[in-house]
């Protein structure tokens, strides 16, 4: 059962990737001019002084940390949904205690101004 569940997914993956390639092929067949046009990046018609690829000023860096904590928590929460009534009250208490602790972290990060950056 488990393998046959994934069989259509695999077929679909092959199919859709083939469709993407086919669309590119179609574009190659239809396009007016084959040779690519080489151009500078667009920012209104004039040229920049450097290559735009750069170390970006990521001002939401602290948020990524908080997000990671919650993302880990989601790993537990997905399987937890299947066993709530089987395990009983203790499952709910433990999960929401955990979430409560994480929310305290959110409150702290908020107080520190991590969610406002401009």
């Amino acid at each position: 059962m488990a393998t046959s569940d994934w069989q259509p997914v695999l077929v679909l993956l092959v199919l859709i990737v083939a469709a993407v390639v086919l669309l590119h092929a179609l574009s190659v067949a239809l396009r007016a001019v084959r040779e690519p046009v080489h151009t500078g990046p667009f920012s209104g018609g004039l040229e920049p002084q450097e290559h735009p690829l750069s170390r970006f000023h990521v001002r939401w860096y602290p948020v990524t940390m908080v997000f990671l904590a919650f993302d880990m928590e989601m790993l537990f929460m997905y399987p937890w949904t299947k066993v709530v009534s089987a395990v009983g009250t203790s499952a709910v208490v433990e999960m929401f205690l955990f979430l409560g602790i994480l929310l305290a972290g959110v409150a702290y990060a908020w107080r520190e101004g991590a969610f406002r950056w401009s």
């Binding site: 859709i16 469709a19 993407v20 084959r34 151009t39 500078g40």
Partner: peptide, 28 residues
Amino acid sequence: LVQQPRRTRASDLPLARIGAGLLPVAAV
């Protein structure tokens, strides 16, 4: 689809191409 291919200077074509193609693949 009928547009001429277009490359910006020193672009990383495979990355952009994978990025664009990944969206419909992920959705489907």
